[in-house]
């Protein structure tokens, strides 16, 4: 089956702490920190968007892919709910920046937070179908959260990129399973700046039902149990949900730890579980089994079972690791700068 030939991630260096947001809106920071297990989140500066994050992550994926030329990539799919244009693809700019044009298929995907794993799923399908030798899937977002809304404490930015192929794999994809229903838990209507959500309804019936639905189905399909995996990565809308959905299904804290980034990264929406996978691959060893399960409101989950190959040892250190992007070279900003960066200040000019 198809799998990952190269992977990379990119995150902004700016961070804002939960206390700084809570201070402005009179919210109770300790309850967010304890209740949602969020401490801080990444913030993109004004010159960073889904396209620029995608380019940097994809360039790193090409470095780890080693002998893959950009012109050999047959498709580029970017999953995001913050494509910079309403009409004009992100993928063409990214493909041009990588030098992958013009003989390439390109599409921008959207499915709330699941768009990135969709891109991975479709990219691998091309490989399995024999349509092309390499396909690039990118999961990226500069997530929106309305001022004072609960989402403002989590909506963050980042990108993960994966070059899919069939030879010289870093991780072989053994199984996939997708699980979806029509679910009104989170949405954004056209011309609206910020998404709306259904509060507590986004929990049990939405995130947990779909994540568990996909996970249980792929475990059954593969005849595997939680203890058969070295690592597991779940979609991370906050710190608490991925931990709870893991532990409730019999996975351990140790299994989720490497890819559990949300307590200090926030929710990178489409990027969340894919970036978690990059951080997990950064520490994985040949033979390790990884379960990944995304979630996107509306709603659905894509689950993947990856088997890490010997080649991981060759490529892991060829470029920067995700944890280093998460934990080093950080600049903490106050709410005013954050509001400016995220264009939350209305100017009449």
């Amino acid at each position: 089956m198809a799998g990952i030939v190269g992977y990379g991630a990119h995150l902004p260096r700016h961070r804002i702490k939960v206390e700084e947001i809570a201070k402005v809106w009179g919210a109770d920071a300790p309850s967010y920190k304890k209740g949602l297990m969020l401490r801080e989140k990444s913030v993109p500066p004004p010159d960073m968007d889904t396209i620029t994050l995608s380019v940097e992550a994809a360039r790193r994926a090409l470095v780890r892919a080693q002998n893959v030329n950009a012109v050999d990539i047959g498709a580029i799919y970017i999953g995001s709910e913050s494509h910079p244009y309403a009409v004009k693809p992100s993928g063409t700019t990214v493909a041009e920046a990588l030098g992958a044009t013009p003989d390439i298929h390109c599409a921008d995907f959207e499915f709330a937070c699941k768009a990135g794993s969709e891109a991975m799923y479709v990219a691998m399908s091309h490989i399995d179908a024999g349509q092309m030798d390499f396909a690039l899937a990118i999961a990226a977002d500069t997530s929106q959260g309305a001022p004072s809304d609960a989402l403002e404490f989590s909506a963050a930015a980042g990108a993960g990129a994966f070059i899919m192929g069939r030879e010289n794999l870093i991780a072989d994809c053994l199984y996939t399973h997708s699980y979806m229903t029509d679910m009104p838990d989170f949405w954004r209507r056209e011309h609206e700046f910020y998404p709306q959500h259904a509060g507590r309804f986004t929990g049990e019936e939405a995130y947990f039902a779909h994540t568990k639905g996909a996970t249980q189905a792929i475990l059954k399909k593969s005849n595997m149990k939680p203890e058969d995996f070295t690592y597991a990565v779940f979609h991370q809308p906050n710190g608490k949900f991925p931990q709870r959905v893991a532990l409730e299904q019999g996975f351990t804290q140790e299994q989720i730890d490497p890819g559990w980034l949300s307590p200090t990264l926030g929710n990178t929406y489409s990027g969340a579980s894919p970036i978690g996978l990059t951080a997990t691959l950064d520490v994985a060893k040949p033979g390790d089994m990884i379960l990944m399960c995304s979630y996107g409101s509306g709603a659905g989950s894509d689950a993947f079972i990856w088997k890490v190959t010997d080649r991981i040892d060759e490529v892991r250190d060829l470029t920067i690791k995700t944890r280093k992007l998460l934990e080093e070279n950080l600049t903490y900003i106050e709410y005013g700068t954050y509001a400016k960066f995220r264009r939350k200040i209305i100017k009449n000019a």
């Binding site: 004004p46 010159d47 360039r59």
Partner: peptide
Amino acid sequence: EVRVEFRRV
């Protein structure tokens, strides 16, 4: 020392 990054100009 600097590194080149792709950004919105």
